[in-house]
Computed example of a mutant assay.
Amino acid sequence: MTSSDDRNSPQDDPRNSKAAREGRLIIKFLIEHTAYGGFGALVFGCLVLFFDVGGIYSLAMASRDAPIFIFLLFFGLFITFGGISMGMGIMGLGSFSDDDRYRDERTRQRDDD
């Protein structure tokens, strides 16, 4: 009975390992930045339709396939803005090391030896 309790302890659960926790943080980071881009796409798409830029709204409403057109417009905007936002978030992660004065952990560990 105690051996099964020892095997099922929360510390030994692979879903609770350091790699799993870091993986969840990365996924959360990517979803968060994609959502920011999606919100930007929604705002931009609504403004384009509201101000009828290039006659897009008039052209869409004159068609019998207006819902498909609107869906495709917002889908394309979401993919574009979401990808840009996610890329900016990922590229922003390394910005702290672009400073030549920055000393990373490897340098500190070598100094400790």
Rank of each mutant, 00 (worst) to 15 (best):
T2C: 06
T2L: 07
S3H: 10
S4V: 11
D6K: 09
D6W: 10
D6Y: 09
N8A: 13
S9Y: 06
Q11S: 15
Q11N: 12
D13S: 14
P14S: 00
R15I: 00
R15E: 15
N16Q: 15
N16C: 08
N16G: 05
N16K: 13
S17G: 14
K18M: 07
K18N: 08
K18Y: 13
A20W: 06
R21L: 12
G23I: 07
R24K: 13
R24P: 02
L25I: 00
I26Q: 11
I27E: 15
I27Q: 12
L30C: 15
I31C: 14
I31K: 11
I31F: 15
E32I: 02
E32F: 10
H33L: 10
T34I: 12
A35G: 03
Y36G: 03
G37F: 05
G40W: 06
A41D: 06
L42I: 07
L42D: 05
V43F: 15
G45I: 01
G45S: 15
G45K: 01
G45A: 12
C46N: 03
C46V: 14
C46K: 03
C46M: 14
V48F: 03
L49M: 13
L49P: 00
F50H: 13
F50D: 07
D52K: 08
D52G: 03
D52A: 05
V53G: 00
V53H: 01
V53C: 03
G54I: 09
G55L: 07
I56C: 08
Y57K: 09
Y57A: 15
L59Q: 13
L59P: 00
L59S: 15
A60K: 04
M61Q: 15
A62H: 10
S63V: 01
S63E: 12
D65L: 02
A66Q: 09
A66K: 04
P67V: 07
I68C: 05
I68L: 09
F69T: 05
I70N: 01
I70A: 08
F71W: 14
L72V: 02
L72A: 13
F74G: 09
F75W: 11
F75I: 06
F75C: 09
G76K: 04
F78Q: 02
I79H: 06
T80M: 08
F81P: 01
F81I: 03
F81C: 13
F81N: 13
G82K: 01
G82C: 02
G83P: 08
G83Q: 05
I84T: 08
S85R: 10
S85E: 08
G87W: 04
G87C: 11
M88K: 11
G89I: 01
G89F: 02
I90K: 11
I90W: 12
I90G: 01
M91L: 09
M91K: 07
M91H: 13
M91V: 02
G92A: 07
L93S: 08
G94M: 01
S95D: 11
F96M: 10
S97T: 09
D98S: 13
D98V: 09
D98Y: 12
D98T: 12
D99I: 02
D99T: 00
D99K: 10
D100C: 01
R101N: 06
R101F: 02
Y102H: 10
Y102V: 06
D104M: 04
D104P: 05
D104K: 02
E105G: 00
E105Y: 11
R106P: 00
R106D: 07
T107K: 03
R108Q: 05
R108D: 05
Q109G: 00
D111M: 12
D111I: 12
D112W: 06
D113K: 14
D113S: 07
